[in-house]
Write a protein that binds this DNA or RNA. Structure first.
Lengths: 226, 226
DNA sequence: TTCGGTCAAGTGGTACGACCAATTCCGCCG
DNA sequence: CGGCGGAATTGGTCGTACCACTTGACCGAA
């Protein structure tokens, strides 16, 4: 499928090994696959960038559960190269979060939903703007994990990370948006209640409402093509 | 932001050069950035994997508009390594397509919508199952481009490509789903009509309806964790 | 024994130089 | 003027050596 014998062999190996396993050393693996270490590392780099592998100097290369950090890094790069606007990323995030809200409500895992409630409580108890931000982030993270949907969590996590950072930078620069605690809590509570009720439609609606307010942060919209 | 001087320098360079520009040769660029060609190529590889750059042997390295091919390749790898289920990817696609349908209806670009109509007409005129598939693919591609949203198009394109391939493989293996032309056309027409009418809510609803049928393909659901 | 440091082996990260393969460009020949 | 062939350019791979970091075993002191 990948049209690349080395990548195919690697994905097969990764599948066979399973999560948290350690791959053979690069030198040995390269010899086994009949390519140079350079070519092998080239493929490993891709898998690492996408969060399938984790490489630690001095330790080894490990299989890990899909982690959005690599994608997040790459999206940062794409954003820096101004190929992507914040608005278009935001649009993707809205779509994914709505889906996540619906799926989390449908699944209705009490433990996972409790984590969402915990984040909301932290938000109410927050003392500083930074605390609010942290709780906000945790809220959405908990919502995503409550879906049990790996791909959804993967993409939305990356999106959320990139956008939080981008907005924080913008906020620091513009000294705007005092980040009222009451407003934040009011924006998240209906979603949490919809999850508790297991109401899929209400959850989706609450997610949309929440983001309509969030979107007003962009007072100086960046064009799709500057 | 990227915590890597080389990547930062590269993204800056890419931003300054702009689309379709050609980067300096690797040997020269490596010297200019004060790193070896090995290290430089490592960073270039990442940018290429995410479609920010395009490298052609013998020709050069070019800045290109974000292209989902790299992400598609990576998703194929992740799917092969069985870290992602088809169902979870499908869920992401549903969310993105609904958003795309809404944005396309809101924008209401007549030329772009005409491309959607063209794909629908091709579907009606299709003779073989393969023709239907092709028209189906073109329909969704046209819909995405009608949004003018780069990030949305980027992710949904990749998702669509991966899923089409995965479903085709499954269909070949199971000899199921005869792919009735009438059914396909009926599933897509309401969406097209909502676009013509510029009705955002109807477009989103039509997208959801369309995918509810599509989802029935999965007769043997794959578990999230096998 | 137990704790602590020290050292050596293992492993990923980078550098350099050489060569291969595809592309491009230019000058020669018809 | 047009086509063609070879040289220069450029990305792709290889092999080797060395660096940076991690790990674990070993040894000595408390």
């Amino acid at each position: 499928m990948a049209a690349d014998p080395v990548s195919d062999a690697l994905t097969g190996l990764i599948r066979d090994l399973g999560e948290d396993a350690r791959l053979p050393p690069e030198r040995e693996l390269a010899e086994r696959l009949g390519v140079s270490r350079t070519a092998l590392r080239d493929r490993l780099r891709l898998l690492e960038a996408f969060g399938v592998l984790s490489r630690r100097q001095g330790s080894g290369t490990y299989v890990r559960r899909l982690d959005p950090q690599g994608l997040e890094f790459a999206l940062d790069l794409a954003l820096s190269a101004s190929h992507l606007s914040i608005e278009s990323l935001h649009s993707v995030r809205v779509a994914l979060e709505r889906q996540a809200a619906r799926e989390a409500a449908r699944k209705g895992d009490p433990v996972a939903i409790a984590h969402v409630g915990k984040a909301l409580a932290d938000m109410e108890a927050a003392a500083t703007a930074e605390d609010i931000d942290r709780a906000d982030f945790a809220f959405h993270q908990a919502l995503l994990h409550a879906t049990g949907n790996a791909a959804l969590t993967f993409f939305a996590d990356a999106m959320t990370g990139v956008l939080f950072r981008a907005v924080r930078q913008r906020r620091d620069r513009l000294k705007t948006h005092p980040h009222d605690k009451e407003v934040s809590v009011a924006a998240h509570r209906p979603l949490y209640e919809a999850l508790l009720a297991g109401d899929e439609d209400a959850a989706g609606q609450a997610s949309d409402d929440h983001f309509r307010a969030w979107h007003d942060l962009f007072t100086h919209p960046r064009m799709e093509r500057p």
